[in-house]
């Protein structure tokens, strides 16, 4: 896959917009969700919806740091599109009777910590850091989870919504990998070291401290729901394959970092990684909710209603 023309991509993005109102959320098919599926699906959808929302916030941060106007506008659209995905997934939950009134599903503690980090520090991060992490999250979690969902849920409205969501996601990934290559283009030794410098930034270290357990927690969650672990790993390997397809991509030091980290995650036998990270997952489970500050107001923008 060659790098894409971002100008053309922006036009395409603008021309392929859709709304929740384009889908008939009352159409028959909701009854195809089995009683057995329902409780697991509720948790699954809630996690999925929050990942989309977290991705949205990351794109908002990237829009602030984008190296040019076109990319800035693309990221502003992606920010809104990820929010649209979260809204559509909430609309599905509403359809399936998984939301009480106007309730927003509660994020798990690890997502909650990531939300807190994004709110405080994401805007300060260089674009190449989030620009590498986000495609990883999208391809691994979004990609694997969405495929799994469509394989297990028969409701045609769900398929209709995810067809649109997947179209958006393929554009997000196309841009994501192109930007990773752009960031790796013509890298000299000095520039590479400069790009790695944020690793010493305590704010980024905090981000890493919330990102690592999130991945393990999500792995545990999806496995509990019946998704074969290998599917998640296959999706993560796809990141390595696509991200490393060109010399520019491979030269991006953040691609190398994320790729190596993905290998740790995939390798269950790597106890040096998984024992401490799993311990953090357990530890974070003890954090009392009330110890956390109030959720940032951007979280309250979520809605399942097609019209407001």
């Amino acid at each position: 896959m060659a790098s894409i023309d971002l100008e053309k991509m922006l036009v395409k993005i603008k021309n392929t917009q859709w709304s929740l109102a384009d889908i008939d959320w009352e159409a028959p098919g909701a009854e195809l969700i089995t009683e057995e599926q329902w409780p697991k699906l509720k948790e699954f959808m809630s996690d999925l919806m929050w990942i989309e929302h977290v991705g949205a916030r990351a794109f908002a941060a990237m829009a602030k740091k984008a190296p040019n106007d076109t990319l800035r506008e693309i990221y502003s659209y992606f920010h809104a599109e990820e929010q649209r995905h979260a809204n559509a997934e909430m609309a599905l939950m509403k359809r399936w009777g998984m939301l009480e009134g106007d309730e927003i599903p509660e994020p798990n503690i690890n997502l909650r910590l990531v939300i807190e980090w994004l709110d405080r520090y994401a805007d300060e991060m260089p674009v190449y850091v989030l620009g590498t992490v986000v495609p990883m999250l999208e391809i691994a979690l979004d990609g694997a989870l969405c495929t799994f969902l469509l394989e297990t849920v028969d409701d045609p409205v769900c398929h209709q919504a995810f067809e649109k969501i997947n179209d958006d996601e393929s554009r997000h990934l196309g841009v994501g990998f192109t930007v990773m290559e752009m960031q790796g283009h013509g890298k000299t030794y000095i520039k590479t070291v400069q790009m790695l410098a944020p690793l010493l930034d305590p704010r980024l270290l905090l981000g890493i401290a919330s990102y690592f357990p999130l991945l393990n927690k999500m792995r545990d969650n999806v496995v509990a729901m019946g998704l074969p672990e290998e599917k998640l790993y296959a999706a993560m390997n796809k990141f390595e394959k696509i991200g490393g397809r060109t010399a520019d991509g491979r030269r991006n030091p953040w691609f190398q970092i994320i790729r190596h980290h993905a290998r740790f995650v995939v390798d269950r036998s790597n106890r040096a990684y998984h024992v401490p990270v799993d311990a953090i997952v357990r530890l974070t489970g003890y954090i009392p909710r009330r110890a956390l500050p109030a959720v940032p107001s951007w979280v309250k923008e979520l809605t399942y209603r097609p019209a407001a």
Binding site: K14, Q17, W18, S19, L20, A21, S76, Y77, A80, E81, Q83, R84, N87, A88, E301, T303, R305, P306, A307, A308
Partner: peptide
């Protein structure tokens, strides 16, 4: 602050998928 996707019969559709009427 969501980008405007289009105007519809009843209002403004923004990219986060909502029609504001």
């Amino acid at each position: 602050t969501w980008p405007i996707a289009r105007l519809s019969e009843k209002g403004i559709r923004t990219v986060e998928g909502i029609e504001h009427q």
